Computed example of a mutant assay.
Amino acid sequence: MVNIGNIQLPDFPLLLAPMEDVSDPPFRAVCKANGADLMYTEFISSEGLIRDAAKSVQKLDIFEYERPIGIQLFGSDVETMGECARIASRANPDLIDINYGCPVKNVACRGAGAALLQDIPKMVRMTEAVVKATHLPVTVKTRLGWDDSTKNIEDVAERLQDIGIKALTVHGRTRVQMYKGEADWTLIGRIKNNPRIQIPIFGNGDIDSPEKALEYKNRYGVDGVMIGRASIGHPWIFDEIKQFVRTGEHRPAPTVADRVAVCRQHLDFSIRWKGEIVGLFEMRRHYANYFRGLPDFKPYRMRLVTLDSYAETSAVLDEIAERYAEELV
């Protein structure tokens, strides 16, 4: 077992990364159903939550079947982050996670996310404020450093553990790298093998196949892995990794019928959560991912992203299932 405070996870747990405009409750629902062990909300702005901004407040929505689930927060002000942790705790998640890894300009340039990697004393004060503000376990997601000359994650890991975080996830790139190049897990492995480190260490970055998950588990000794982009349109990756780690054998690839069924589940939840108009609109970003690789799919995608009724959309999904089942026999 892997323990995060009082939360018990299976050996080598698989975590769903918090992703803006992706890891909302409908997306989390299909990932949970396909093997994700621990999930997080989209990252929530502390300033937005303090102002009671509708978008930030809605991101606090969590459901019992999602547990264990963490609410992820980001911000640039120490006191505001503490107050935000108190507000988030009232939504009754299983843990609070702090985002020190987001590299995008409109976050980092406001002094939040990965920007804190340039001010480790402030990162420590902010983390301590969050730990003191909640009764829940506090975890952190961050990167190797700001750039190649400031890969300070080994020191960061020790300092954050010392003030009470219960787990650390490290993305194997610097902020300057954004999502380019290959993730470097060498320092992640060194943190895990540091005898001073007693909390779980999770690796993140480029885990896009069962083979790579098992290879990195064995090479770097991490307690588990966090998966982000590889799960978009392919929530089966969690169960695929679990079976491969357990047996060394691959699960059969999802059929077109499987893809249609999970896409429809995602759509149904999106509509239940946000209503038909918004639910349909927000699903539009997912269709191309669910049906990636199907030949001559563009006309179907164009229809799916323009329809504004559930009945019509459902009919197109039925049509896709029927056509490609025949073509791929």
Rank of each mutant, 00 (worst) to 15 (best):
V2K: 04
V2S: 07
N3I: 10
G5Y: 04
G5C: 08
N6V: 12
I7G: 00
L9P: 05
P10E: 01
P10Y: 06
P10H: 03
F12M: 06
L14N: 02
A17G: 01
A17L: 01
M19Q: 02
D21P: 03
V22N: 01
V22R: 00
R28P: 08
A29N: 15
C31A: 07
Y40V: 01
T41H: 07
S46I: 09
E47K: 10
E47V: 11
D52A: 10
D52L: 11
K55L: 12
Q58K: 15
K59R: 13
L60P: 00
D61V: 10
I62W: 03
E66V: 00
E66C: 06
R67E: 01
P68V: 00
G75L: 05
S76T: 00
V78K: 13
R86K: 15
I87D: 03
S89I: 08
R90H: 10
P93K: 06
L95H: 00
D97Q: 03
Y100S: 08
R110W: 05
R110H: 13
L116R: 11
I120G: 04
R125A: 14
R125T: 14
E128S: 10
A129R: 11
A129Q: 13
A133P: 02
S149N: 14
T150E: 08
I153M: 04
E154T: 10
L160H: 07
Q161S: 15
G164Y: 02
T169S: 09
V170D: 01
V170I: 12
G172E: 02
T174P: 03
V176P: 02
Q177M: 14
M178E: 15
M178W: 14
Y179H: 14
G181H: 06
I188L: 05
G189K: 05
G189Y: 04
R190E: 11
K192R: 14
N193F: 02
P195D: 04
Q198M: 11
I199C: 07
I201S: 07
D206I: 01
D206K: 01
I207F: 02
I207W: 08
K212Y: 08
A213G: 05
R219Q: 14
Y220A: 03
V222Y: 00
I227C: 04
G228S: 09
R229F: 09
I232V: 13
H234C: 13
W236I: 05
I237V: 07
F238D: 00
D239E: 15
I241S: 04
K242W: 02
Q243R: 14
F244C: 07
F244D: 03
V245Q: 12
E249A: 09
A253Y: 14
A257R: 13
A257D: 14
C263S: 10
R264L: 15
R264F: 12
H266M: 10
D268K: 12
S270T: 08
R272F: 11
W273N: 15
K274N: 13
G275L: 03
E276H: 10
L280Y: 11
L280V: 08
E282K: 15
E282Y: 11
M283F: 09
R285K: 15
Y287N: 04
A288F: 09
N289P: 04
F291T: 01
G293E: 00
P295N: 06
F297R: 10
P299M: 09
Y300F: 15
R301T: 12
R303S: 04
T306W: 08
T306F: 09
L307G: 06
L307Q: 14
D308T: 13
Y310P: 08
A315D: 13
D318C: 12
A321P: 06
A321V: 05
Y324T: 01
E326M: 12
L328K: 06
